[in-house]
């Protein structure tokens, strides 16, 4: 991974080129950041038809506001921030609930069994855990899903996630604790539903 000073220097060069009218530089920015943008959009927006439009909308905003970027964060983080808020705005406009009803409904009941309770089960469960986790992630609310993805899959720091979602680090940490707990409960719930 590139060091932060190098990353910032590269960002400066690219931004300067785009502001001077170099569209190839903007294309480079899109290619370098579309992974992060896709992660946020796919986690926040359920409708596949809206996702592509959303991504284009994000990059048009980035292009229009690039002159205002002051390098207080990495360019990718700033683009992530625009993506997250564009998605939030879209969800609010469509009146889609951001927090699901009844997280607590999934509290494991005393009769619930837990994966990995014995060695043989461990072997079996590891093979299907990937699908269990994917299903459980789909059931999480968009914000929890995004936070978990940014931290555990994109390996961003609390500070970078805080800049993207515009929340203090402490709040990000507490949201992540809650998100992991809910994810674990979803996994347990799906697992117990499957084993009947």
């Amino acid at each position: 991974m590139e060091s932060r000073p190098n990353q910032l220097a590269n960002d400066r060069i690219l931004v300067r080129k785009v502001l001077a009218g170099d569209q190839r530089a903007f294309s480079q920015i899109i290619k370098a950041t579309e992974g992060l943008v896709a992660q946020i959009i796919f986690k926040m927006i359920a409708n596949p038809d809206d996702r592509k439009d959303m991504a284009q909308d994000v990059y048009l905003k980035v292009y229009q506001q690039l002159g205002r970027f002051r390098f207080q964060a990495k360019l990718s983080t700033w683009i992530g921030q625009i993506t997250y808020h564009t998605c939030l705005h879209h969800l609010e406009r469509k009146k889609i609930a951001l927090v699901p009803i009844g997280d607590s409904d999934l509290e494991p009941s005393p009769g619930f069994s837990t994966p990995f309770e014995n060695e043989i089960e461990s072997q079996l469960i590891r093979e299907e855990l990937s699908q269990l986790v994917a299903d459980a992630m789909d059931q999480l609310n968009p914000i929890y899903r995004t936070l978990i993805t940014l931290y555990h899959q994109e390996e961003l720091s609390y500070s970078e996630i805080g800049q993207i979602v515009q929340l203090p680090e402490g709040t990000v940490k507490s949201y992540l604790f809650r998100a992991r707990k809910v994810l674990k409960e979803h996994v347990l719930w799906i697992y117990n539903t499957k084993i009947g």
Binding site: P115, A134, L183
Partner: peptide, 12 residues
């Protein structure tokens, strides 16, 4: 369970 679930998330 926590470790395995989040490792799977990283590998999705």
């Amino acid at each position: 369970l926590y470790r395995s679930v989040l490792e799977e998330v990283a590998n999705l």
